[in-house]
Write a protein that binds this DNA or RNA. Structure first.
Lengths: 374, 374
DNA sequence: CGTTTTGCTGAATCTGACC
DNA sequence: TGGTCAGATTCAGCAAAAC
């Protein structure tokens, strides 16, 4: 290793990302428009692709052309094939414009979601979760021939197995009353005031509820991130993005949807910063070493720590290590060794004798953080 | 179109079906054994193929205990291509031996279900529903890196668009307290007495709960129908078939599974009414998180909440947490902290300013439940 | 003997910073 | 780029043990 390399500060290799103008709507075909965007410029893609497949007599190919009859196998194969080609095309562009650590969400039903999921995997995306939107008030099955179709499926995927995607774990947990957010989400369908109508008719047949996009964006983006929706429709993605302080790009072909979308986004009020902030995971909080607490007098050298059941006792040394006689180790190592475990969080394992009982040393750390926070 | 085709009388072709010996277990490879069965001899196929999980290293719980994961060879495939070839092979045979009006069920997770669904469609099967098995007690996500994987997906498909499949609509409606059975089923995972163990260890890593098979068979077969399970495992399909008066054929390769399965089926007695009621899951009160009210717009981020005496004021944040400056916490935790109490019911502690005075946020929850209940 | 507490476990693609 | 190590991380159901 040369001298220069040793002297030069070790810098994390920045993922090559590009910038792009956001908060705008692109009129026209989604594949063509995506193709015009630079590589690695999008933080999240939310896609609600068409799945007008096998809906009976009136069948259109994704490219708009009409399929005559659907009564024989050839046509079925043809329509699946066409749909797969369409899916691969837009996914390829999506993958290119998505940042290395960006993620993609796609929503669909059993008509198309299996083909979309397969295509995602084939293109190299790494599926992180499939999410079930369990509809609180679905349309009943009028003919009594099947189960009530009461859900839709979303797929959440990263660029690859090792990508460092955004997941606001703590915010999701808080949103769910201090329980981990699960892969099944109970949310009402879009109706009432939220449902866009014109002349008494709904503007878009499958308008998604803002609550769905709210959760998706809160979970997987940071404020300021750019969210692209290649099948923008009436702009739910844009409206929620604006409300949550995210940037958005929408692509839409149909003029009446565009009109409704722009009007709607204009009316969406951004939240102010305090309302926008969310619960942070400790991971994102300042890191404090146990030794710092010793140095700053939060715990004295010579103090005795025990586990919750007082089975083991260890003494704090001046450098922040623990000792049980001759041996010394970090709070984590010592805890792991004693339990015969591969690892151990010393902050929660070790306790000190406070005036009101045994408390984990993590409480001291919290006190330290609160006292030293700006 | 030729003349002969027009002249020939259009006669509904009688479904040509064959008979086969049932209530037996075939030892060995599922594709080879299916190939040995005659055409159109099976009424329903239930398949729980390998999920192709591709797990990495070991996983430990936060308390250090080890997660006993699926490490069996039968779940290992080299690539998606290899998995797809395997899937197509067994589905081809499945389609051949299934009667024209028979149906197939396949269960999987996001690792494999999209590939299975695509293959089903490509082979010509007609998807009738995708069903979500919403697990009442899933394994949590220990690392806090994703959403808790709390469901599995089942696909129900017929031989084609026009096949006259069996669907016991009324039975399903009765099972669901006189409401149409939905596409999301809440059922516990297999545990307790039902879980087969030997020497303290589970016999099969992924034993399915009988309640799941019970609902599937009750919905889509008639008494006396023949149900084939090509991935028989420890024979849940066989046990439930016997209890429900259906016939069964199982195919399994692994001798220890076979032994457990035969013993189990032997012990399965036809279900009496008291046992039947146990199989049914109790309808549970919908649980609403405070965050859901924020997502759905029942209360806006930035809104101010107070206690009944207006001694404390807190602001609602985007993730449903409350803040009084820098600190954030859930409605319950914040209430407890302020009062110096060990716990607090945030729903009744916190109030919002309504047009007709101060009201507990629990009123909003009631409104939400009333609006979204089916 | 009834009630409460403690312990175990389940189809899981489960870390990240630094050297 | 692989090795090392600090440190962050869990919910519901059931069963066995303790009270």
């Amino acid at each position: 290793m040369g001298v220069l390399e040793r002297v030069a500060p070790r810098r994390k290799k920045a993922a090559a990302v590009n910038s792009v103008e956001a908060n705008r709507l692109l009129r026209g075909d989604c594949i063509a428009h995506m193709a015009s965007l630079p590589d690695a410029c999008i933080d999240m893609i939310f896609a609600d692709p068409p799945y007008n497949l096998q809906l009976g007599g009136d069948l259109n190919r994704p490219d708009g052309s009409h399929v005559d009859a659907v009564t024989d196998d050839w046509d079925k194969f043809d329509s699946f094939g066409a749909y797969d080609r369409f899916t691969k095309s837009w996914l390829k562009e999506a993958r290119r414009i998505l940042k290395p650590n960006g993620t993609i969400w796609v929503i669909g039903s059993y008509h198309n979601i299996f083909r979309v999921g397969t295509a995602l995997q084939d293109e190299g995306f790494w599926i992180l979760n499939d999410i079930i939107w369990r509809k609180a008030n679905p349309m009943p099955n009028f003919r009594g021939t099947r189960f009530t179709n009461a859900h839709e499926t979303l797929i959440w995927a990263s660029q690859g197995e090792d990508s460092k995607y955004t997941f606001n774990y703590k915010a999701m947990k808080t949103l769910n009353d201090e329980l981990q957010m699960r892969s099944d989400w109970v949310l009402p369908i879009c109706g009432g005031q939220e449902r866009l109508k014109k002349g008494g008719h709904k503007v878009h047949p499958t308008q998604k509820p803002e609550a769905l996009l709210y959760r998706v964006m809160l979970a997987c983006t940071k404020p300021g991130d750019i969210v692209l929706d290649p099948f923008f429709g009436t702009g739910t993605t844009g409206a929620v993005a604006r409300r949550l302080g995210r940037q958005w790009i929408g692509i839409e072909r149909q003029e009446d949807y565009i009109e409704a979308a722009l009007e709607r986004i204009e009316a969406a009020l951004p939240l102010d910063e305090s309302a926008l902030s969310i619960m942070q995971s400790p991971r994102q909080q300042p890191k404090v070493a146990f030794g710092t607490l010793v140095e700053t007098g939060y715990i004295a050298p010579g103090a005795v720590l025990t586990d919750i059941k007082r089975r083991w006792r260890a003494t704090v040394r001046a450098d922040g290590s623990l000792t049980m006689g001759a041996e010394g180790a970090s709070i984590h190592k010592m805890g792991a060794t004693l339990q015969g475990a591969p690892s151990c969080n010393g902050w929660t394992f070790w306790h000190y004798e406070a005036t009101d009982g045994l408390k984990p040393i993590d409480a001291l750390r919290q006190t330290y953080i609160l006292a030293t926070e700006p």
